[in-house]
C-alpha cells in the first residue's frame, strides 16, 4: 500500500495509451486529484477505450 509520502504514480492503458496520473485524478469523473490507483474502483474502465483496470501498466514515477 502506498502511503501519502510515496510519489504519485502514472498508469498507462496498454490498449490505447490513455494515462491516469494519480496527482491529477479525473475530477470530471468524480475521481479527485491525489487518488491512488488502488483506491479506484475495480469496475472502473479506461475512459478512452473501455478496457478494465487490469489492462493498465505503471509508467514512470512523477515527482510529488
Amino acid at each position: 500500500m502506498s502511503t501519502s509520502e510515496t510519489p504519485f504514480r502514472r498508469w498507462q492503458c496498454i490498449v490505447c495509451g490513455f494515462v491516469y496520473d494519480e496527482a491529477e485524478g479525473l475530477p470530471e469523473e468524480g475521481i479527485p486529484p491525489g487518488t491512488r490507483w488502488e483506491d479506484i474502483p475495480e469496475d472502473w474502465a479506461c475512459p478512452d477505450c473501455g478496457v478494465a483496470k487490469a489492462d493498465f501498466e505503471m509508467v514512470e514515477i512523477t515527482e510529488t
Partner: peptide
Amino acid sequence: PFVMPLVQ
C-alpha cells in the same frame, strides 16, 4: 473500426 466497440 474503433477500440471501444471491439473491447465490448
